[in-house]
C-alpha cells in the first residue's frame, strides 16, 4: 500500500531524471571492490590520522610524522583543563605543575619604578599562572618580555562570580599595558609555552594590588 503511494507520487512528480541504465552503472563486482577499498581506507585514516589528531593516540607513528599527534595532545589537554575549570567553578586556578623548571621571584623594591618583578621559565608545553589580587577600581601597570622563544598568554580575571577576558596572544615576545579591575578578584595571566624551546618570561608590575599569586 505504501509502495503504491510512492508510485503515484512518482507519476505525479514526473522526475527530473531517467531510470538509470544498468549498462552505465558500476557492476556489483566493482561496488564490492570499492566497498573493501573504502573500509580499508577508513581503517587507515581512523588509526593513522583520526586517533592521533583527536586523542593524541598514535599506535602507528604516522600521526607523529604528519604532525597530527601534537594536535590531539593539545586538544586533550584543553579538554582536561576545561573540565577542571568547570569543577573548580572558575574561582581558583587549576593546578598546573607539569614541566615547570624554575622560578625566581624578587620583590625588588630597589628597582626604580617597578614594584615587583616575577621571573619564570617554562619548558615546552608547560604553563603557569600569575595573578594579582585586586579590589574593584584598582589599576595596575605591567610590562613583560619573553626570551628563548615565543609564548602564548591569556590575560583574564575572575572573582565575585564574574569573569572577563582582557587580552589574548600567541607567539608573542613582549607586552605592556594596564589592568583596570572592574570587580574584586584575581586578575592576571595564564601563560603557556607552545614553542619548541625553553622560554624565560620576565614580568614587571606596579600599581594598586594586594599580592601576587603564582601557580605553576
Amino acid at each position: 500500500m505504501i509502495s503504491s503511494t510512492f508510485e503515484r507520487m512518482r507519476d505525479a512528480m514526473q522526475f527530473n531524471a531517467e531510470k538509470p541504465d544498468p549498462a552505465i552503472l558500476p557492476t556489483p563486482k566493482q561496488l564490492r571492490r570499492s566497498t573493501i577499498a573504502a573500509v580499508i581506507g577508513a581503517a587507515f585514516i581512523g588509526v593513522g590520522v583520526y586517533l592521533p589528531a583527536e586523542y593524541g593516540i598514535d599506535p602507528t607513528g604516522v600521526g607523529n610524522v604528519l604532525g597530527l599527534t601534537e594536535m590531539g595532545e593539545i586538544k586533550q589537554q584543553l579538554a582536561r583543563e576545561a573540565a577542571e575549570d568547570e569543577l573548580i567553578h572558575g574561582d581558583q586556578s587549576s593546578n598546573l605543575i607539569d614541566g615547570f623548571l624554575g622560578l625566581v621571584v624578587s620583590a625588588a623594591h630597589a628597582q626604580e619604578v617597578w614594584t615587583d618583578t616575577v621571573t619564570f621559565t617554562l619548558a615546552p608545553d608547560a604553563s603557569a599562572e600569575i595573578k594579582l589580587v585586586m579590589a574593584e577600581g584598582d589599576v595596575a601597570e605591567y610590562t613583560w618580555v619573553a626570551e628563548g622563544g615565543r609564548i602564548n598568554f591569556d590575560l583574564h580575571a575572575h572573582g565575585d562570580g564574574q569573569s572577563i577576558d582582557y587580552d589574548r596572544g600567541r607567539g608573542e615576545t613582549e607586552g605592556a599595558g594596564m589592568i583596570e579591575a572592574p570587580f574584586a578578584g584575581e586578575h592576571g595571566w595564564f601563560w603557556r609555552n607552545r614553542d619548541d624551546a625553553e622560554i624565560m618570561v620576565t614580568l614587571q608590575l606596579r600599581g594598586a594590588y594586594a599580592e601576587v599569586i603564582e601557580t605553576y
Binding site: 593539545i74 586538544k75 584543553l78 579538554a79 583543563e81 576545561a82 615565543r150 600567541r170
Partner: peptide, 12 residues
Amino acid sequence: TPGDAGYIQEIW
C-alpha cells in the same frame, strides 16, 4: 575553547 578552535588558537 577546547577542540579544533582551541587548538587553532594556541598555534601560529
